[in-house]
């Protein structure tokens, strides 16, 4: 499906004049140090530090309003940080925003295409904005058309495309100039599951070709596709690591799945039990964090039976990212969230 996306780093222009400006560790694509953004009294981003390596899919996970978009906009130079610094490909965003812009691709939440331009006109426009060399233009455009699955629809108005196609066309427009770093801000919001899947295949393809993909999402299932994740909550990083590390390491105990009736009532009951660290509703079941799942299971069953709540399966499960997230963002006495 995807051709011609090799050599993404081999544009001679970026290496020649950028060498002097580069700083920071080799291999790091995005380095953020103590980044803060305040809007009045409100700290939308509160002292965030992170490093995304080259060729990595770096996930930025958190609920709406956690500060994901604000961070990404600071990394693209659209907002200036209150304090802290950020480098992209080793170049400081605050001091050399124009050089950074030539070296990144950015896709905002709205898939900002010109609805009154055709697919090709949109691609030509953004190719022009990024000064894609004339010799590469035909191959880049046909690559983007194919990637978006828009063969035969080149002359359609972008506004008439379904959301999934629009999203892939927007990605095509954003990476026509082969940027080594790509920022995607909630790229899959409002897109059907099939298109989401296709889109993530594209992201993986880009990463395999050496592109660093910095992606925000609030879909926990998508976070599983990332090489590395940062969980952000109320402007602060609450956890980071690979999905596996997060699932293994971030929870203090083991996870117990409890299928039962009256989950609301059961949650109240079990949440108060001393041997249960944490309890949360997942669909029509409960997830409990306990020290030892095997020991706790009989106790849970007894408690439920005493209250007349019929229980089904009670067994240990591997935590999902959602469990990790809920566990990390639920304030409990004796622990800062």
């Amino acid at each position: 499906m995807i051709r011609d996306s090799r050599d993404l780093r081999k544009d001679p222009r970026d290496t020649r004049d950028l060498r002097d400006l580069r700083k920071g560790p080799e291999g790091a694509a995005v380095v953020v140090t103590g980044l803060v953004k305040r809007f009045g009294d409100f700290a939308a981003v509160d002292d965030i530090s992170l490093t995304a390596n080259k060729g990595e899919i770096f996930g930025f996970l958190g609920p709406n309003g956690a500060g994901k978009s604000t961070t990404i906009r600071m990394l693209c130079g659209l907002l200036s940080p209150t304090s802290g610094s950020a480098t992209v490909s080793g170049i400081d965003v605050a001091t050399h925003p124009e050089i950074v812009r030539q070296n990144i691709g950015y896709m905002s939440q709205k898939f900002s295409l010109y609805n009154d331009l055709t697919v090709l006109e949109n691609l030509h426009f953004f190719a022009g904005m990024y000064s894609v060399p004339r010799s590469q233009l035909p191959s880049r455009i046909s690559w983007a058309v194919e990637m978006a699955g828009l063969n035969g629809r080149e002359k359609s108005m972008a506004g008439t495309l379904a959301t999934g196609w629009k999203q892939r066309l927007a990605l095509g427009c954003a990476v026509l100039h082969r940027p080594p770093v790509v920022f995607l801000d909630e790229p899959t919001s409002g897109v059907d599951p099939m298109s989401r899947r296709q889109f993530w295949e594209l992201i993986h393809q880009m990463a395999a070709d050496g592109v660093t993909v910095f992606v925000t999402t609030h879909y926990m299932d998508e976070a599983e596709y990332c090489n590395r994740l940062v969980l952000i909550y109320r402007g602060k990083i609450v956890a980071s690591g690979s999905p596996l590390e997060l699932k293994e390491g971030s929870m203090s105990g083991e996870l117990l799945l409890v299928e039962c009736e009256k989950v609301g009532q059961a949650l109240e009951l079990l949440g108060a039990a001393p041997f249960i660290q944490d309890a949360a509703i997942f669909g029509n079941a409960l997830h409990l964090v306990v020290e030892n799942a095997e020991q706790a299971a009989p106790g849970v069953k007894t408690l439920l039976a005493r209250e007349g709540i019929a229980a089904g399966k009670v067994e240990r499960i591997r935590p999902s990212l959602e469990d990790v997230f809920v566990s990390l963002t639920t304030p409990r006495p004796g622990r800062t969230p």
Partner: peptide, 14 residues
């Protein structure tokens, strides 16, 4: 309003 300005702003256009 339609959001394309944000997309243009991240390009190198002066």
């Amino acid at each position: 309003e339609i959001g394309t300005l944000e997309q243009i702003m991240v390009t190198p256009i002066r």
